[in-house]
Simulated assay, not measured.
Amino acid sequence: MQNHDAVVSEISDIRSAYLRDRFVFVPGTQLTRIVKQLGATDDDLEKLTTVSDALTSDPTLPFRKTRTGRFGFDPRSMQVRRLEFQPFLLSTEDDFVRHDSGRVRMFDEIQDDLQRNTALQALFVFKYMVVEGVPVTRRPKLDYDSDQWICTLLNVRTITDGDLIGEPALEGVHSDGVDHTMTTYLGSENMRDDSAVTFLHDMREANGTRWHDTDADLVRARAQHRDFLDTCLLVDHESKHSVSTLYAADTSKRATRDLLAFLTRKPVAEGHHSRSFDSLRPHPDLPMAVGLRVLDGAQSA
Rank of each mutant, 00 (worst) to 15 (best):
I150R: 09
T214E: 02
L89M: 07
G69W: 02
R116I: 00
D163E: 14
D179F: 08
F23Y: 14
L31H: 04
T41E: 08
F71Q: 06
N117F: 09
T152A: 12
Q37T: 02
L45Q: 06
S12N: 15
S16L: 15
R76T: 13
D258F: 13
G162H: 04
R98S: 13
P282W: 00
S242D: 06
L154W: 08
T214F: 07
T158Y: 09
G187N: 06
F96R: 06
D176F: 03
D213T: 11
S300P: 03
L233M: 12
F107K: 04
S244G: 12
V235F: 10
L120G: 04
A122P: 05
L295A: 06
V130K: 13
S188R: 08
I150M: 12
P287D: 05
A216C: 04
L170M: 10
G72W: 00
K127Y: 01
E238Y: 03
L233K: 05
T158S: 11
T60R: 13
L246V: 07
P87T: 03
S12T: 15
L142A: 11
L200M: 02
G291H: 13
D43Y: 10
R76C: 08
D21V: 03
S279H: 06
S300C: 13
A216L: 11
D143P: 01
L154A: 14
L280F: 01
T264E: 03
N155T: 10
L233G: 07
A6S: 14
K36P: 02
W149Y: 14
K36F: 02
L154P: 05
D95H: 15
D176H: 11
D296M: 05
C151I: 10
F23Q: 06
G69I: 01
M203Y: 01
S146G: 04
T41F: 07
R204E: 13
P267L: 04
M78V: 02
S16D: 15
D145G: 12
P62M: 07
D250R: 10
Q148V: 12
T32E: 08
L186N: 07
Q115M: 14
D296H: 11
V131I: 15
F71W: 09
R275D: 05
Q299W: 14
L292E: 09
F262N: 03
H273M: 02
V8L: 14
G39M: 01
V8R: 14
G297I: 08
D215K: 14
T56I: 02
L259S: 13
V104S: 09
M203L: 15
T118I: 00
T66F: 01
Q148N: 12
R192Y: 11
D74S: 09
D179N: 11
V80W: 15
